[in-house]
Structures are given as C-alpha cells and as structure tokens.
Design a binder for these strands. Structure first.
Lengths: 340, 340
DNA sequence: TTGAAAGCGCTACCAC
DNA sequence: GTGGTAGCGCTTTCAA
C-alpha cells in the first residue's frame, strides 16, 4: 500500500553520487558532468522520484506561493479576478493560496498567517479587503510584499479604478435623461470589506447632483450587500415609498439585477417606468440590457499579477498605484422618466 | 528594514526553556507547567514570534493543504464550488491551493505535482476534470487522497448528479409542451474537461425522445463551450436553419443565456417563439425567467469537503460516491410551440 | 566536477 | 514537567 516514496538520498545511492549532485543535476544547475547528469536523471526516472516541494522550499528559503484574500470567492467580481491572477502567477511558477476572509477576524488571521514571519507565502494579494494604514506599514516594514485590488493605502501597491468618476458618470446619464429623483443602492460590506468604494461612488453621485444644482434626497439611499436578493428587497422598499425614485443607480450590477426583479415584482417596466444604471459590466448585464459603468475586472487581476511578479523580482522599488479606466456602457435600462 | 525575525530558539532563550518546551507551550500541548507556559507565551508575544508554518509542517510530516484543480476558476459553477469548499476546509484548518487546469498538460502537471510524493498537499479535489481510471488508481496506490466533483471514477470518492436524469427531465418538459424539434446545445469541454457530463445529458435527451416514440434530428445538436458568446453564435445558426427547432435544451444556463441573446437578435420572443431549458440554476437564471434543472452547486462543494475531511481523518474507508438530487425549476421560458 | 556536512525552523522521541 | 537531540527532505557553502 504505502510504498516507501523515493527520497533524494535513494536517487543519490542509485546513481552512485551525492545528494548535492542529484540536487544540482535535477534542477539543471551547472557544474555537473553531462554523463553524471544522465545517470542521475535515469535513476530518478527509474525510482519515479519527485522532489518534496515544501522541504526544497524550506531549504531554499522561499515559498513560491502567493496568498490571496477575498471576502467571498464565489462572487463574480472576485472569481473573475482570481481567475486572471491565477493564470498569470501560475505561469510564473507560483502557487496560489486562496482564503476567504468574510469577517475582520478572518482578515486579521490572514494577515498574521501570511506575514513574512510565518513563511507561508512570498507575497499577498488583497482583493477588496481594506487594511489600516498602520497595519499595512507594519506589514511592509517586516518585509511583507503585497498588492491590493480595489483598495488603496500608501504603503502597498494597488490597482483600482476612479470610483468617484464611476459614481459621477452613472449619475450623470440619469440626470441627462431628466431624472430628478434618483435612488442609490449603496454597497454595505461585511466588516472586512472595503468601505471606501461605496463612499467614493456615493461622492460621485452627490457631485453629479450638485453640478446640476441639485441635492439628492437622503431618503433615496439604501445600503445592501452585493446579493441581488437583498438588493431586491431594498429596491422594493424604495419603489413603494410615498415619493419613489424614477431611476436607480446601483453600485454593482448584481444589485441592479435585484432592482430589476423588484421592478418586475411591482409591474414596473424598464426603462419606461424605471431607469437603472449599474457598475461592473457583469457577464450577465448584456443579457438583461443593463446600462452600466464597466470596469475591466480580469485586467485588474492581470495587472496585479504583473505588479506582484515585478516586486518579487530582483529590483525592488516603491509601491506602485495603477488606476484603470472605466467606461459607460449604454444599453437599454435608461430612458426618460415617466410623466404622470 | 529586514529586522531579524524571531525564531523558536529566540523564544526559548528569552523564556529560559528549551525549544521543545516552547513548541509544546505554544501549541497548547499537555505536559507543560502553567507557570512555564505563561512565561513562554509572554516571551513569544514580546518577540512577536510567529511559527514558520512550512518548517512546522515539514517536521510534523503534514501539509495541511488541499489542492484544488478546476478548468476555469472564473466560471460561475466552479467559483461557487470553490467558495463553499474553501469555507469548509478553512474552518477545519486546511489551506486551499487553487490551480487552473485548462489543458490536459496542465492537468497532468497538477497530478504529478500534487501526488503524495511531492508533499505539497494532503489531498486533492478535482472539479470537473476527468482522469483516466488507471491514473486514478495509481494515484491512490501511492497513497493519494482525492475527491472528484462532477466526474466519477471508481478509485476516487466523488460527488455528482444523475446527468442522464437531468437531460431527460429537461427534454421531457419540452416534449410535454408538444415540442417536436428540440435543439440541443451541447457542452464541449477543453481537453482537460469532463466529457461524460455532455454525453450523459445527451443520453437523457435521446432517452426522453425515444420514450415518446421520437427520434431527435442530429442536425439539431451543436456543441459549444460554456461561454454564452459562443453559445449565442451556435444558437443563432440553429435558429436560422431551414427547419429550426421550436425549443432548445441548453446543457448549462450560461449557454441558455447565449441562446436568449440569439433569440433576441432574431426577434424571437421567449417562450412565444422559442422555448428554452437550461441546467444549473445559475444565480442569474431567475432574473431572466429561465426554466432550468437545478443542481445544488454550493452543496456539492460542501459535501466534497465533508468527504475529504473524513478521508483525512483516522479511519480510512473505501471511496464513497455521493449523488445529489436535481430538480426542475419552472419559470417562464417554456411554452407551447408557435403554430405557423 | 563532486562530496561532506551544516543548516532551513520546527517537531517528537526518549531520557531525566 | 522538561531538555537534549535526532530527524523531516532538501539546498548550499566549502573543500577536495
């Protein structure tokens, strides 16, 4: 059953050389006579030898692993980023360790577990999880290497979008269509989530209003998670209020989907009875004709991977902050307000 | 900058005890006087000591890591499973290593890299990736521990659904509505993917037909990936054929979404001009009123985690195969064929 | 070009 | 209850 696995020593013995030579030969390092290398290779193949990675890494003092923290690995945004990120770092020879950090306790644990100190990973990527500036600084002071996505703090490299602009352009298109009561479906993170995104998008929403000489009605703002089920309930309440909005700006497409469902519940047609704008350009948004502010999600993962690989390279530099473009995608969910 | 990280020896020295005692004290093992433990704890806190995980694991001969292979981590089905799986195994104290294996080369590499031999993981979970029976047997013969999801081979524990029944019930509802020309949007995996699922669902489709005394027109079957963009093109072609189907059975909801788009392109309304059934009950299916055969995706991840944890436990047993139920979810995408 | 031996940081066994 | 010490499996000087 448990056949004794071949170790480097077994290969050495079989090839009649030392373990040092086996190590060199197998890794293609120089200073090995090619005849010797052949012999080692043959012996290794013969014994079906596989080097023990953790041991090799311990000895070499590296981990070749990138640890990733994300609030919810199943959410579309996160999954898309993880996919892109994984592709790139795997190609570069790194392993991807994935942790869900739904609560701030878990986030805390993640940070501790993945500091350089614990030797579990060479670097960390934080997707939509916020970090106190001091914790971040302490992390890098200890030699930690990290990049954040969707969140920005000075000490760490980051990839983000301009969320104020996002909120502004989503609101503007609604304003341009003469909507004057615009509901806001705001994002309420779990406690480990990133609060700056909702507040920045809300700032854009407010800014667009004030540019137009308007002041949004605070009663029109409600917060929900990114689940459409929750957004649906919230939108439902909004739309059944005494003075309902004629349009809704949802901070993510999933919430917009919930709003669509709510509209349907109430017999409201989109865009005739209700206009709607989301953010993300979710895979399904096109299907339902949702007008939305697209952010290039997979690209964010790819860029993060690039930054990471660069930081892990020989020449260290200061943290880099890249901000990606967004664009308004016009589909069929925005029209003029209904006149009653 | 690179402040020297505290090692177990430093803690031992600071507390005036041996490393053995530190190890015991820190891990809460018995045979440590509580006064000693306090002293060790204090010293560790003082030095901000973090045990080096890889080293600890190497010494203890464990990895505490589960390696997961999935064709595409970004796909909804996979992401949902990974999310559920991760939650459970993390709770049990394991790390989750995630690898995308889009090609059979990558799958091969994954298997080699994660055999017991390489000591990288304690167990492996394969999501929708197929394995030759011999490779699977060899894997367990070497002491490998694995569970597969969506694919079944004798040697490995698995969690699956009855895909023939899935295909049958999707087809039956269409047949029951008097459709006689039913298109089949079949799944074509990448080369690492699991081919048994499409063929089983197709068998269900054929079986339902023959039970009704019918023979499906082979021209009505087309294969695409699970991307809706591709499915859209395929459905488009199907619907513009000389004798188009009056209904389509799509092997996954994402393909059904593509078919919806194709229908829209052609000015066909659902279900008036075209009926549609999918499989999965994707998060978005409810939004677009798609009738579908639901499989409990997150549950599959949870069950897989359970099997895994059990296998990793003390009492080894034979591989277990659990088959989860599916259910037809009736929404608004199926109606009688149009009479022209 | 090759080998001996000293680690990497921790655990676990066996004495005391 | 505690410490000494031999590993875990590999890498990497350093000398030969």
């Amino acid at each position: 059953m448990t056949d004794p696995v071949a170790r480097i020593g077994d290969v050495a013995r079989a090839a009649g050389v030392s373990t040092a030579t086996v190590s060199r030969a197998l890794r293609g390092l120089p200073h090995v006579a090619s005849a010797t290398r052949q012999r080692v290779l043959a012996a290794a193949a013969d014994l079906d030898y596989r080097p023990n990675l953790p041991a090799a890494r311990l000895a070499a003092g590296t981990t070749n692993t990138i640890a990733t923290a994300v609030p919810d690995p199943a959410a579309w945004f996160n999954a898309t980023i993880v996919g892109a990120l994984g592709r790139h770092i795997t190609a570069a020879g790194y392993d991807l360790l994935l942790s869900g950090v739904a609560s701030s306790d878990e986030r805390q644990r993640f940070i501790e577990l993945n500091g350089v100190r614990s030797g579990r990973s060479d670097a960390v990527v934080l997707i939509d999880v916020a970090l106190d500036a001091e914790i971040a600084s302490a992390f890098v002071a200890q030699g930690g290497c990290a990049v954040t996505i969707g969140f920005r703090t000075p000490a760490l490299s980051s990839v983000t979008v301009d969320n104020v602009a996002v909120g502004r352009s989503a609101t503007e298109i609604l304003l341009d269509h003469d909507h004057r009561r615009i509901g806001l479906l705001s994002l309420s993170g779990g406690d480990s989530l990133n609060f700056s995104i909702p507040s920045q998008r809300a700032a854009g929403y407010a800014g667009a209003h004030s540019t137009a000489g308007l002041t949004p009605d605070p009663a029109l703002t409600v917060s929900t998670s990114n689940s459409w089920a929750e957004a649906r309930r919230a939108a439902h309440a909004l739309l059944r209020a005494a003075e309902p909005p004629s349009a809704i700006f949802a901070m993510c497409d999933e919430q917009a989907f919930g709003a669509m469902l709510a509209a349907r519940d109430l017999g409201l047609r989109i865009p005739d009875d209700l206009s709607l704008v989301g953010v993300d350009d979710h895979d399904q948004s096109r299907l339902v004709g949702l007008t939305t502010v697209r952010q290039h999600v997979a690209t964010q993962g790819a860029v993060a991977a690039e930054l990471l690989l660069q930081m892990l390279g020989p020449n260290v530099g200061p943290p880099q902050h890249v901000q990606l473009d967004t664009e308004l995608i016009i589909r069929d969910s925005v029209g003029p307000p209904r006149i009653d």
